[in-house]
Computed example of a mutant assay.
Amino acid sequence: MKLLVFLATTTLLAGGAQAAEVIFAHGANPGNPRFIAAEKWAEEYTACRGGADTVNVAPSATMGNDVEMLTSATAGVIQLSANSQGPMAQIVPEFGLLGLPFLFADLPAAWKMLDGEIGAMLDERAQKVGLKVVGFWDNGIRNITHVSKIISEPADIKGMKIRTPPDQMTVDIFEALGAAPAPLAWSELPSALQAGVFDGQENPLTNIYSAKLHKITPFVTMSGHKYETTPIVAGLGWWESIDKETQDCVIKATKEAGKLQRQLSYEGDQTLRPKMEEEGATFADVDKKAFQEATASVYDKYAEKFPEFVKALKAAAGQ
């Protein structure tokens, strides 16, 4: 935290002219909605700027993992990142609250909330640590995959070695379910699963399919246990160094590419199940009430730490 604030301060002091090249970094591989939308972002931004800037899209964690990309954005090494909820929560804890178990009924409900007051509150907090949130893309409602069995009820998770993103909320959810969760960077997940380090993992169907995780962990339980966003963040130093017209182009490109990204994520939830079944995956639905009851303690923990924000989230989600 102190390092990020220090880097943000030095970047702001350095100022500097608007960069001719804009680096937009992310961790997704080809076929993932985040990857496709980043390419769309480059097209939209370049067109809006009339060719005044060029965009270098750096995918597949070529600029480091999500945490490293956030540090690079704050330091001015890159300009923007399509990042992840867990890493953002490490420096802005309120981001993690978006993943409270079973908070949202569906994706549109989450998007509506993020495009409103809750999103503005998160941006305000991010700016205090040197980051500007320019929009929210999607990272889906998440489900569990296992190497050898379906998770029919909470008891089936007891002792399960499950990979989570570097996100304390996800760890708390699975600890409440009796699992043995361990965080690991997304880029390292396929090899870790193949090596037998984990019994399984959790992700939205779009991520599972694009990374071919259903080939390694073919038992898919539609738990829908939490939601995650993909925050699009800029280094605050760079953001404040560009003029209003350029800022408007950033916002416009993020919004237009976000429409595509959200659409692909939503369509994936609707269409990927039969495709994955054809490729050998076994699916099962669950009685979510039992899982909600088993994870109720997670709400208690975070309501004690962030009472007003949890209250605002629950109200925005219609709970």
Rank of each mutant, 00 (worst) to 15 (best):
R273S: 11
W186P: 01
E245F: 01
A185P: 01
T271P: 05
E256F: 00
T229E: 11
Q270N: 10
T254L: 01
V250G: 08
V220N: 06
D243S: 09
I232S: 02
P204N: 14
K212S: 15
E175R: 13
P204D: 15
Y266L: 10
P190R: 08
L236H: 06
E240V: 01
I173G: 05
A179N: 11
T217H: 04
L189G: 04
G200V: 07
Y266P: 00
L236G: 09
E188T: 03
P183R: 10
I242P: 08
R273V: 14
P183K: 10
A179R: 07
A234W: 00
A257F: 01
H214I: 03
Y227S: 11
I232D: 02
N207E: 15
E240Q: 14
A257M: 02
L264E: 12
V197M: 11
K215C: 04
V250Y: 03
Y209I: 00
G235L: 07
A192I: 08
F198T: 13
K259Q: 14
W238G: 02
D243P: 10
A179V: 07
F174N: 12
S210V: 04
L205S: 06
D248E: 15
F174S: 10
A180H: 14
G258C: 02
L236W: 02
G196T: 08
E228Q: 12
L264V: 07
T217K: 05
E256Q: 13
Y266K: 07
I251M: 13
T254Q: 02
D248Y: 00
N203S: 15
K212C: 13
S187K: 13
Q201W: 09
Q263I: 00
P231V: 09
S210P: 04
S265Q: 10
C249S: 06
L213C: 12
Q194M: 13
A179I: 06
E175N: 12
G268H: 05
L193Y: 03
P204W: 00
G200E: 07
L184T: 14
Q194H: 02
V250P: 02
T230K: 03
A182I: 06
R273H: 07
H214M: 09
F174V: 08
Q270P: 01
D248W: 01
A192F: 05
L193T: 04
E228W: 00
D243E: 13
A195N: 14
E188L: 15
P231E: 11
V220D: 02
D172V: 13
I242A: 12
I242Y: 03
T230L: 09
Y227D: 08
T254G: 05
D248I: 02
L184R: 14
T246W: 01
D172H: 11
K215A: 12
R262E: 05
V171R: 11
L264H: 07
E278M: 11
